[in-house]
Design a protein around this nucleic acid. Structure first.
Lengths: 259, 259
DNA sequence: CTTTTTTGCGTATGTCATACGCTCTATTGC
DNA sequence: GCAATAGAGCGTATGACATACGCAAAAAAG
């Protein structure tokens, strides 16, 4: 144990939790010696998020964030060891605090469903955050908070703890990737300047041209059935997949309930 | 119709399929006028893939690929309009040709399951490709080929065409993101220098330190149950989710079979 | 008051994507 | 055949960007 904070669990051979992440968890820093910091980690992250919201994640450069704060580029490195750390903190900020836990009377399915929809809304609201690569298992407060909340819906089921975490991970994975696909897609549509329906129709025509019906019978059938005639409501698509997954989990819950 | 190839379907107001992508589909270019190209699009993409395989996607710069080919940086721009296009073509190369379509006697579930596992193996084998952002719906030959193959498993079910595409999209989405998470994660573990089990144990200790059991009861329960004591086999985790999703789809298929 | 730590920040380095324009080449229209 | 022309390779900018390094000033500790 050293004179200051106990880092025995956040440090290990070859790796340690970055100092900036310890900071968001509120692990208190000793009162400093040198000059007072002119900024705070929070202000840096907020500024970065502001830039990402208004100009996209690609616009988030150290110098852009610095000018946003009226500081110099290099001063940011007193709060964050590298840009990657800043991105991780921005991602945590994007999650925000998780929604309130499900009410006691609610079933697991309803709880998980609401959780997934809330998560999805968060991803859509902060589309820029989807471009930040996932660098490890959740270690930031809001991310862990969402995980906790997801798990809590399953508390009353008889599932094994290991299975519960798998389920929550599964739904998070699904939700994130559905959001990623749609965000990228709508960016592409936007870039084309066409209205979504028209773009979809164009895509259908494109496939028709490119795919030989002999080699691509299933796709041709889909085209013929008019699948690509108009853009599907993304909500519908997401709901479809979610219900399928929940159906699958229901099978599992039932099996574990009546042995 | 103009003097050369018919582009009426690959061009549209405000957007057109990039020339390099038309090229991989084998849309023939008119016999050229100027000097003979010293390279081919295929060689450029191959070189880029070789770099990505041996040094990671981050090492793929235009100049690195050029030196790989013994050419100058700028010469690559005769084959590809921008780096993004090169990345899209690399991604298509990573998919490779889809596995053979399911045998006639096989059920949809077995077919889709095999498809998903094959897709997953492909993602794992070419982990670098997961870092390439998805820029639109599938338009490259191998990607479309995989899509076709996935759909073909569902041909015999009575599902509507629209639902079939949703199902295939769902499984692809799930598979891709599971792979993404595990690839990133194992990169993080690798970077730490610890063996996976030890890393997981460390992560458990980390969570224990950071999470107050009052505010994070569900996570604390998971920790107490030893969920984080050892790294799960990623195959198990993937199989779990996949079976859940297939269970969900089975519900759907049954419902549409006996109305 | 001196030592130590820590801050802000100027400067420098190396990497990248890519615009531009020059030269040279092979095909095409005459 | 021959000139016009589209295209090929590529050298040379240009303007970002992340970040290493080091200095000078500030504040707490002794």
């Amino acid at each position: 144990m050293d004179d200051h904070t106990d880092h025995s669990a956040t440090r290990a051979a070859g790796w340690q939790l970055p100092a900036s992440i310890e900071a968001v968890w509120g692990v208190r820093d000793r009162p400093h010696k040198g000059p007072k910091p002119g900024l705070t980690l929070g202000r840096v992250v907020d500024a970065a998020v502001r830039v990402a919201e208004s100009e996209g994640l690609a616009a988030v450069s150290m110098s852009r964030v610095a000018t946003e704060l009226g500081a110099s580029t290099m001063s940011l490195y007193r709060y964050v060891a590298a840009k990657d750390e800043l991105l991780d903190l921005m991602a945590d900020q994007a999650y925000g605090p998780p929604p309130p836990p499900p009410e006691p009377g609610q079933g697991w399915r309803e709880g998980l469903s609401q959780w997934a929809w809330a998560l999805r809304a968060t991803y859509y609201r902060n589309a820029w955050a989807l471009h930040i690569p996932i660098s490890s298992l959740p270690v930031t407060p809001n991310q862990v908070g969402w995980f906790e909340n997801g798990l809590s819906s399953l508390a009353a089921t008889g599932l094994m703890e290991e299975v519960k975490t798998s389920v929550v991970l599964l739904i998070n994975t699904y939700t994130r990737s559905e959001a990623t696909i749609n965000v990228n897609l709508s960016a592409a549509v936007q870039a084309s300047g066409m209205p979504p329906d028209e773009w979809m129709a164009y895509y259908g025509r494109l496939l028709t041209t490119l795919t030989d019906p002999q080699r691509f019978p299933a796709i041709s059938a889909a085209i013929a059935a008019g699948v690509f005639d108009q853009a599907d409501a993304p909500d519908k698509e997401f709901g479809f997949g979610l219900e399928r997954i929940l159906d699958g989990i229901e099978v599992l819950v039932r099996a574990s309930a009546c042995p």
